[in-house]
Nucleic acid binder design. Structure first.
Length: 281
DNA sequence: ACAAATACCTGTAAGC
DNA sequence: TGCTTACAGGTATTTG
């Protein structure tokens, strides 16, 4: 499942391989992948040059020479893959972005939770402004989780009764954290995932912010997590390596690498979390 | 304002 | 073996 570190890995590769290239054509074959507007709208970015690739949370933002922004969200099973024109098309390919020079970016997504859309760039906005301020569709997102600040978290967690993990995966609180990294961040911070958000003391909030930053930075350095289902692959089809450093996620009944106790799974409502009863309180 | 539940979707795995 | 069911979960929307 692509979360912030996986999307950041994709961002860096798209930037490296395609910035400076002109988009020739964007062909949509999956209706659900483009559901916010008519697929024909993409003619607006034909012949535009890719000038920058941004990211906020799990949203990837391809910025073009005339100021338009193409937004991609990979959902649960979405992949962006590099191909050469004429390569065989894999199943569940819903869109193909062709660039000059013959290379393509293909949007492949079996579960179709991902999407692609041309953003509504706010009138008068400048390119040096943050993406949520520039793009109406991203305005609801909280700060990017890779730069989590203790002072901000202290304010947004105050008085909240919801479990800490539920708040961490809430994109309005922090943008970019999903199921895997929420568990790993709680583990790193030594906090039970079912603690009420508002029950954290000052030092615990500081630890949480620091853990968010360090876990996400380490995961980016390892090019993300590729689980057994192989759903996340980078642009060239390579797996990430951060799953080798997971301390709790997916490790049910396995010994904690710190204290040796068995990793457990907590459930509330439709959510669950892996955690270590010896290290987290 | 907040919290919880639900719909969306399909490949995989478990159970009978 | 073949069928049914449960599960995975990010986001938008609805309900309480």
């Amino acid at each position: 499942m692509p979360e912030l570190p996986e999307v950041e890995t994709v961002r860096r590769d798209v930037s490296r391989l395609f910035v400076g290239r002109k988009l020739q054509r964007l062909v949509v074959t999956g209706r659900r992948t483009v559901r916010r507007h008519a697929p024909e709208l993409f003619v607006r970015i034909e012949r535009q040059e890719l000038t920058n690739v941004g990211r906020h949370g799990k949203y990837l933002c391809l910025e073009w020479s005339d100021g338009q922004v193409l937004v991609a969200h990979l959902g649960m099973s979405g992949q962006l893959l590099v191909a050469t024109a004429g390569d065989p098309t894999v199943a569940h390919t819903h869109a193909v972005i062709s660039f000059d020079g013959g290379r393509e970016l293909r949007f492949v997504d079996p579960r179709t939770f991902g999407e692609l859309f041309l953003a509504d760039v706010r009138a008068g906005s400048r390119r040096d402004e943050a993406l949520p301020e520039r793009l109406a569709e991203l305005g609801h997102l909280g700060p990017d989780a890779a730069g989590a600040e203790p002072a901000y978290l202290e304010v947004v967690l105050a008085g909240r009764r919801a479990p800490l993990k539920s708040l961490l995966v809430d994109q309005r609180v922090l943008a970019g954290i999903g199921n895997i990294y929420a568990d790993e961040i709680c583990s790193e911070a030594g906090l039970r995932p079912d603690r009420a958000g508002g029950s954290l003391g000052h030092d615990e909030v500081v630890s949480l912010a620091q853990s968010a930053r360090s876990v996400l930075a380490a995961a980016i350095a390892a090019r993300g997590s590729t689980l057994g289902d192989q759903q996340y692959r980078d642009l060239l089809g390579n797996a990430g390596r951060y799953q080798l450093q997971h301390k709790v996620y997916g490790r049910l009944a396995m010994p904690c690498v710190s204290c040796g106790r068995s990793i457990e799974r907590l459930r509330w409502g439709a959510r669950s979390a892996f955690w270590c009863p010896g290290c987290q309180r």
